[in-house]
Simulated assay, not measured.
Amino acid sequence: MKEVKIETKVQVFDDVNELPENVQNLMKAAAEARDKAYAPYSKFKVGAAILLENNEVITGSNQENASYPSGLCAERTAIYYAGAKYPNTKFLIMALTASSNNQITDKPIPPCGACRQAIAEYEIKQDQPIEIYFMGATGKVAKSNSLANLLPLGFDRSFL
């Protein structure tokens, strides 16, 4: 037996103002999308914004349903819309922000597992990393240079 250590590295910024201007603008777009979320059950609103290589910005917000599995996360809403509208355009940067009516969200909130898998599909498809910035409603912002940092033992088509 051999033990293998897997590490994840992210950069952490004290707040949005430390980010490059283009990422600040992307995070603002994500916050605007978050404010449009439909989250009457969880009271947890998420917004996503994706900068594409053609300079288009695609946003998405979480959309809940009384039948919980029928809802969709903000990340996947944005990803699937971008994939449908611009099928051969690379994703460069993704910004995510989440807030809750039940508690203060001032720590970086990463994408859920299902969203990580969806992001991984596009990162693998384009054979290029996607920078991912994520935060709560306020406070610190984390940056991952690639989805592979957040999902190091990912499942992809090579296993099929």
Rank of each mutant, 00 (worst) to 15 (best):
C112D: 02
K90Y: 06
E75K: 00
I104Y: 04
A31I: 09
L147M: 05
N25F: 15
A30Y: 02
P20G: 12
N54T: 10
M94F: 11
S146W: 00
D14W: 11
A137K: 10
K5T: 14
A114L: 05
T77D: 03
I104R: 01
E121S: 13
L96E: 07
K5R: 13
L19E: 04
P111T: 04
P87Q: 08
S61C: 14
L153D: 05
F44V: 15
V23E: 06
A37D: 08
K85T: 13
D15E: 10
S70Q: 15
Y38N: 09
S100D: 06
T89C: 12
A37R: 00
N17R: 13
N55C: 10
E18H: 13
T89H: 05
R76A: 01
N25W: 14
I104N: 04
G47S: 11
L150S: 10
E53H: 12
G136D: 01
Q103Y: 12
L19H: 06
S100H: 03
Y86S: 10
K2Q: 02
G136W: 02
A98W: 01
K107N: 10
V12A: 11
K2H: 03
D14A: 15
T138H: 04
A84Q: 11
V12P: 01
N145R: 06
Y133P: 14
A31Q: 09
R116L: 14
S67F: 15
A31M: 09
Y81S: 10
N65V: 13
N25E: 15
A74W: 00
N22E: 14
P20W: 04
L151Y: 14
Q63G: 09
V4I: 11
N62P: 09
I119H: 04
A33T: 07
A114K: 06
C73K: 06
D14G: 15
T59Y: 05
E75S: 08
G113T: 09
I109S: 03
G60W: 08
A84Y: 12
N17M: 10
Y80L: 14
G71M: 06
F155C: 02
D106C: 09
S100I: 06
Y41K: 01
D127W: 03
S61R: 02
D15S: 15
N101S: 14
P69R: 13
F134Q: 04
A74S: 10
N62T: 03
P87K: 02
S144H: 05
V16R: 15
A82H: 07
E121Q: 12
